[in-house]
């Protein structure tokens, strides 16, 4: 029988992974929409983007809220440390999310033609992942100090850390890689050849920086947090599997076939890497202040949360399946006939 705190952190990690995928599609789409506009290709992909993203943007947002409400629920100490340290970066992320969230509502009514707004949409698509990845950097330890119960964030150490910049770089490149691969898949479902070629090109282009950023991050992690790095090396097979999936994705994209499988391969690639990273992080949530066992909420609450979580999934999975059926796997809808 697994203890509730392990269940808790596993659940949260799966949700963070879910957010990573759906949000990357969303954030990357913002950048591509802007870039395509600059290069005069916007007519090719705008409709594709808005048809998939408009019905699901709110769901994407909930994934995020779900993750951190869950984190604080399972590990209240996280609120004290992360809450105090992240006041400024967290607030910046809120503002960026606000700009982006309002875009979806306002874009339907003419502002899409407004280049300033499109620029904001594209820019937030890159800035949000960058600002959110700061939380991951902090979790490695060495950036937060506590004196007399007052928690402060060492900005100088953060901004001069090669680890921080390589993780930000990894966040940006993988957002663009994931998004382009998904949109290529969506374009192939819509039988939209020009959009497909464009997105396939973007996906192939962004695959290389993604894998480079991944290796750089691991390299700097080995210098910054020896323990975490060693733990990850013990999971070498998981990392290897991730690289294998990456190569399969690359091959499929290069050959220009089976885009659905390519995207599934990409999801597996990130799943393996993400879990190798996460398991290696054990037992710390914030090195060295919060551990999974020490920071967990009381047992009664932990169990209640797990129960609610299971009940909630029973509600959500069929609902999400319905969304996918209506907007992702309904060929007529994808092609724009409905």
């Amino acid at each position: 029988m697994m203890s509730y705190e392990i269940v808790g952190i596993s659940v949260l990690w799966i949700f963070l992974y879910g957010y990573l995928i759906v949000a990357s599609i969303d954030f990357g789409a913002g950048f591509f929409a802007f870039y395509a506009r600059l290069t005069g290709n916007d007519h090719l992909i705008n409709r594709l983007i808005s048809r998939y993203l408009s019905p699901v943007w709110e769901i994407t947002n909930v994934f995020f809220v779900f993750f951190f409400v869950g984190l604080i629920g399972f590990f209240p100490d996280a609120a004290h440390y992360y809450g105090s340290a992240l006041l400024v970066p967290g607030s910046i992320a809120i503002i960026l999310l606000a700009i982006r969230g309002s875009f979806y509502a306002f874009e339907n009514y003419g502002s899409k033609k407004n280049i300033v707004f499109l620029f904001l949409y594209g820019a937030t698509g890159l800035l949000i992942p960058a600002s959110l990845s700061v939380a991951l950097v902090l979790s490695e330890g060495g950036f937060i100090t506590e004196n007399n119960g007052i928690v402060t964030l060492d900005y100088l150490a953060l901004f001069t850390s090669p680890l921080a910049w390589s993780i930000v770089g990894l966040a940006l490149t993988s957002v663009l890689f994931i998004s382009a691969s998904f949109l290529a898949f969506y374009a192939s479902r819509a039988d939209d050849k020009p959009a497909l070629e464009l997105m396939r090109g973007y996906a192939l282009f962004w695959s290389t920086p993604t894998i480079i950023a991944a290796f750089t991050s691991v390299l700097y992690l080995s210098q910054h947090n020896e323990r975490h790095f060693q733990n990850m090396m013990d999971l070498w097979w998981l990392l290897g599997l991730s690289v294998v999936f990456f190569l399969i994705v690359l091959w499929l994209l290069f050959k220009g076939r089976a885009y659905g499988w390519a995207f599934i391969g990409l999801m597996l690639q990130f799943l393996c890497a993400f879990f190798a990273y996460g398991i290696g992080h054990y037992p710390y949530i914030l090195d060295p202040y919060i551990t999974i066992q020490g920071g967990a909420t009381q047992e009664a609450m932990g169990i209640a949360l797990v129960v609610v979580f299971v009940a909630g999934l029973l509600l959500l999975i069929p609902s999400l399946a319905l969304v996918f059926r209506l907007f992702l796997f309904d060929a007529d809808y994808v092609k724009g006939k409905k």
């Binding site: 209240p76 004290h80 105090s84």
Partner: peptide, 25 residues
């Protein structure tokens, strides 16, 4: 809630996490 009132969430999180979690659901 967590950024501006970190000590509140640290203390009360143990008791009110359930409704917060369910609200998100």
């Amino acid at each position: 809630l967590a950024l501006v009132w970190p000590n509140f969430m640290q203390m009360a999180g143990n008791v009110i996490a359930l409704p917060l979690f369910m609200e998100v659901f």
